[in-house]
């Protein structure tokens, strides 16, 4: 199994963290992982993206141009990466703020109302975990228990009390992903 993906959106949406949690989850189940961020002048409000590879085998290039999955969380990322999804691949996006929706017919397209659900849950910070939950429903490449183990490992002890909230967010995403 090799999953090559890109997660892209605005800085501050938790794009890089989502990728990091996925990579940690992969490590928890003994897989090879790579996490390659864009590191330009990205900051809150700018664009940010990260390429994540999870594989059973040694990973060659951390730099890719085509992806099995693209998680696209703003219009700029949609414009840039819709065409980069491999035929038969997956595009997951939050329709909030998207004016030009994806049009490809040779890929599977899913939506998750991440921003809306996060605000309903009263915490905009868990947006990325809702989207991550939606992804795990579509592609259960890492087990939920390993995600939790990954979270424990990557979060400082003082933040461990937030893990149940993250679990709820993941379930929320899993239960609300819609195939278009």
């Amino acid at each position: 199994m090799t999953e090559e993906m890109i997660i892209a959106g605005f800085g501050g949406q938790g794009v890089l963290s989502m990728g990091k949690i996925l990579a940690y989850s992969g490590i928890m189940q003994d897989q090879e992982v790579s996490w390659m961020p864009s590191y330009g002048p990205e900051m809150r409000g700018g664009t940010a993206n990260v390429t994540v590879i999870v594989s059973d085998e040694r990973i060659s290039s951390p730099i890719l141009t085509h992806y099995d999955t693209a998680i696209l969380l703003n219009q700029q990322s949609m414009d840039k990466f819709e065409k980069s999804v491999k035929p038969g691949g997956v595009l997951l996006y939050d329709p909030n703020g998207i004016l030009h929706h994806p049009t490809r017919t040779d890929i599977k397209i899913y939506t998750i109302e991440g921003a809306k659900l996060a605000s309903q849950m009263g915490n905009p910070n868990i947006f990325n975990m809702i989207v991550f939950g939606a992804f795990l429903k579509i592609k259960p490449i890492v087990k939920l228990e390993n995600v939790i183990r990954g979270l424990k490992k990557s979060l400082p002890e003082r933040h461990h009390k937030l893990i149940p909230l993250n679990e709820d967010a993941i379930s929320m995403g899993m239960n609300n992903v819609v195939e278009k």
Binding site: K20, A23, I27, E32, V33, S34, W35, M36, P37, Y39, I59, P62, I63
Partner: peptide, 10 residues
């Protein structure tokens, strides 16, 4: 280089 410096791996 910037790739190896910035990327995360096991």
């Amino acid at each position: 280089d910037g790739v190896i410096g910035q990327m995360m791996e096991k």
